[in-house]
């Protein structure tokens, strides 16, 4: 069970229809690769965020599969077209089955 996991998202509050907006996301997570060993020499089990998705009004914008080589606190920055006002939903899937999500609304300017 990963502790201290906290998603952070930055989305502009307003946009014009058809605009490409820049979205930044970060989730604090230790991203334990499964390759390391503890002081006694036992392998530390893998514990990473393995999937990240972004949806806008139910339509998928981005779907990422993440691998153990990704470093701690994974950060994504991408652009998305906004055809209308609505909600962005961001979802992170943890190895331990936990699902973290964040929601941001965009209004039309």
């Amino acid at each position: 069970m990963a502790s201290g996991v906290k998603p952070r998202v930055k989305v502009p509050k307003t946009a014009s229809a058809g605009d490409a907006i820049t979205i930044k996301t970060l989730i604090s997570h230790k991203m334990e690769s499964g390759q390391r060993k503890d002081k006694e020499g036992n392998p530390i089990p893998r514990s990473i965020i393995n999937r990240f998705t972004c949806d806008f009004n139910g339509q998928n914008v981005l779907d990422v599969t993440m691998e153990p080589a990704i470093s701690t606190n994974p950060y994504f920055q991408f652009q998305a077209l906004v055809p209308e006002a609505g909600d962005f939903v961001f979802t992170w899937y943890d190895d331990d089955g936990e699902v973290y999500d964040a929601k941001k609304s965009v209004k039309m300017a």
Partner: peptide
């Protein structure tokens, strides 16, 4: 502040 990695720690 979003780009500043220190804010992960101030949240903690």
């Amino acid at each position: 502040d979003f780009d500043n990695p220190a804010f992960v720690f101030t949240d903690q």
